[in-house]
């Protein structure tokens, strides 16, 4: 349905659109991080796309890839009733992505969330604080190499009898998946 958005993007940006696909009927376009703001702005302002509604911004971690953090931006058009997902990829060493703070108001919190949970740094975001976790939390828990059970308590624990009984250990770590 929204294939014409992908066509329109390819028409306008040519080789800058690195990949397009339609997994399970949702149109996806991948761009390099430097083109991220330009393409996003085009999606919003172009009358054919007119993506006036911001839906979601989040991230996924693929530690096997060189550019392991994949940022997803989902947009919707109230007028045309179509949606698209725009992606960009960055490495963990240099996780900087230009912020889209000015384009949609809703972006603010979602960028903070992606920063909080994945450590993607949105350059240009005026107030990039943690939002779901607390100041002083180290690391980014949704990265695959953060052990799920690694807590960072803010208050000291009281001495209580151990609550975990075998076969559950205290730190099982986090299997990436069941290969």
């Amino acid at each position: 349905m929204a294939q014409r958005i992908l066509d329109r993007l390819k028409e306008t940006f040519g080789a800058k659109i690195l990949e397009t696909s339609s997994p399970s009927g949702d149109e996806v376009a991948v761009v390099a991080r430097d083109d991220w703001p330009a393409v996003a702005r085009f999606l919003r302002d172009d009358p054919v796309c007119a993506m006036d509604m911001f839906i979601d911004l989040t991230c996924a971690d693929y530690p096997d890839r060189r550019e392991r953090l994949e940022v997803w931006l989902r947009l919707y058009s109230i007028g045309h009733r179509h949606r698209v997902c725009l992606k960009t990829r960055v490495s963990a060493e240099d996780p900087k992505v230009p912020s889209l703070y000015d384009l949609w108001r809703g972006i603010d919190w979602f960028e903070r969330e992606a920063f909080d949970l994945f450590g993607v740094v949105f350059a240009g975001h005026p107030d990039l604080r943690r939002i779901l976790l607390y100041e002083g939390f180290e690391g980014h828990p949704l990265r695959k190499d953060y052990a799920a059970e690694k807590t960072q308590p803010l208050v000291g624990y009281r001495e209580v009898p151990p609550t975990k009984v075998p076969p559950f250990g205290t730190a099982e770590g986090m299997p990436w998946s069941r290969r």
């Binding site: 839906i55 979601d56 996924a60």
Partner: peptide, 23 residues
């Protein structure tokens, strides 16, 4: 919205819940 990614196994690779309340 639920954004789900599978790597072909029986375990989700990533499940993103886009809760309306947050926005």
């Amino acid at each position: 919205g639920f954004g789900v990614v599978s790597d072909g196994t029986g375990t989700p690779y990533r499940v993103r819940a886009r809760g309306p309340c947050f926005a």
